Every structure is written in C-alpha cells, then in structure tokens.
Amino acid sequence: MVSFTGEYVQKIDGKGRMSIPADFRRVLEGHDPDWAPGANPGLYLLYGEHLKNCLHVYTVAAFRQIAQGIQAMPQGAPQRRIASRLILGQSVRLDVDKDGRVVMPADQRAKLGIAEGEVRFTGAGDHFEIWENQTFANTIAAEVEAFLAAQGEDFDPLSLLQG
C-alpha cells in the first residue's frame, strides 16, 4: 500500500529546484517499476485547475493505474474525455535527480504563485500535495478550524473511520 504521510517544508530556488523529502523518495522508489538501486525514481505531477491551490504528486505505478482506469472507460464517453483532459493532459512526468531534487516547471510554479521560497509537501496516503507554504497555512488552517468547530470539543478524528 502506498502511504505518503507527514508534512515537510522545503525551499524552492529560482530555477524551480526543490528537494523531495527522503521519506517520500522511498515511497516513490518502491512504486516505480523501472527503479533499481542507484537509479532515480520518477513521479507524476498533476497541475489541473480542479486542484485549486496545490499540485498532486503520484508514484509511477499509481499514475499508470489511473491512466489504465481512464483508458478502460468507453471510447467517446464525455467522462473519459474530461478525465483525460483533467488528469492525463494536465500532468507531467518528472525524475528525481541523484541529489533527491526535481525541477518544477515554470508553469506549475506560476500556478502555485511561487518564483522561489518555501513549499509545503503534505502526505495524503496514495499521493502527496505541494502547496505554497503561506497558502497552505491560510487555506488548511481555516478549513480545519471550521471543521473542528462544527464537531464539538470532544471530537476524535479517528471517529471518521467508523461507519
């Protein structure tokens, strides 16, 4: 099972280089069928407008499953066309270099509103998200605060797992 967990703040330089957290690199390696010790793992960066203020990153194996699911949809179906455009058309494969970094393309940096500075990687189980750090703080803090206020003082997040 793929499991990206935790939050990490990393710097991104003016050329778009950023270091992938070591824990995330291990997951990427383990789920890249072409990876071997000494090689660099790949990843898929999704950047569509439907993602709002963040980018999603999937392992090579997970993205292949997603692509197969789209291709299994009926040819000519509107859902297939939209899924293809939003997912396959708005994704890019990147390779992690020997230093554990990737170069985020300029268009994707522009989507996040960053030229350089800090980005936040946040685990989401089967993928991880990349946010401009301050946007994450503002967006997620408000979202979590509103949710917790609606739940009451004794809320236990593990209760969400119980049907």
Rank of each mutant, 00 (worst) to 15 (best):
residue 51 L to Y: 03
residue 104 M to R: 06
residue 79 Q to W: 00
residue 136 F to E: 00
residue 28 L to V: 04
residue 136 F to W: 07
residue 76 G to F: 06
residue 83 A to D: 04
residue 43 L to M: 13
residue 103 V to T: 15
residue 116 E to C: 10
residue 96 V to N: 04
residue 157 P to G: 05
residue 154 D to V: 02
residue 35 W to K: 03
residue 19 S to L: 14
residue 147 F to T: 10
residue 76 G to S: 03
residue 35 W to G: 07
residue 67 A to V: 13
residue 152 G to D: 03
residue 76 G to L: 10
residue 159 S to K: 14
residue 40 N to Y: 11
residue 26 R to V: 13
residue 75 Q to N: 14
residue 82 I to N: 07
residue 39 A to G: 13
residue 94 L to F: 10
residue 152 G to C: 03
residue 52 K to D: 15
residue 11 K to N: 14
residue 58 Y to F: 14
residue 16 G to S: 09
residue 53 N to E: 15
residue 12 I to L: 09
residue 49 E to C: 15
residue 115 A to V: 12
residue 60 V to N: 08
residue 145 E to P: 12
residue 106 A to Q: 00
residue 162 Q to I: 15
residue 21 P to W: 08
residue 162 Q to R: 13
residue 146 A to Q: 14
residue 54 C to K: 12
residue 102 V to P: 04
residue 145 E to F: 10
residue 129 E to W: 01
residue 122 T to M: 02
residue 105 P to S: 07
residue 114 I to R: 01
residue 105 P to Q: 08
residue 112 L to R: 01
residue 12 I to C: 05
residue 62 A to Y: 02
residue 29 E to N: 04
residue 102 V to F: 03
residue 98 K to I: 14
residue 5 T to V: 11
residue 91 S to W: 05
residue 41 P to N: 09
residue 47 Y to S: 09
residue 133 N to A: 11
residue 15 K to C: 06
residue 12 I to F: 02
residue 105 P to C: 09
residue 70 I to G: 05
residue 140 I to T: 01
residue 15 K to S: 06
residue 22 A to D: 09
residue 102 V to I: 12
residue 18 M to V: 11
residue 148 L to S: 07
residue 31 H to E: 11
residue 31 H to P: 06
residue 20 I to S: 03
residue 32 D to C: 06
residue 127 H to P: 01
residue 38 G to M: 11
residue 64 R to Q: 13
residue 148 L to T: 07
residue 116 E to S: 13
residue 58 Y to N: 10
residue 70 I to W: 05
residue 122 T to L: 02
residue 153 E to W: 02
residue 69 G to W: 03
residue 159 S to W: 11
residue 92 V to H: 10
residue 36 A to N: 14
residue 55 L to E: 04
residue 149 A to N: 05
residue 1 M to D: 10
residue 98 K to R: 14
residue 142 A to E: 14
residue 111 K to P: 10
residue 36 A to D: 12
residue 34 D to S: 14
residue 16 G to P: 06
residue 68 Q to Y: 05
residue 89 G to W: 06
residue 58 Y to G: 08
residue 22 A to N: 10
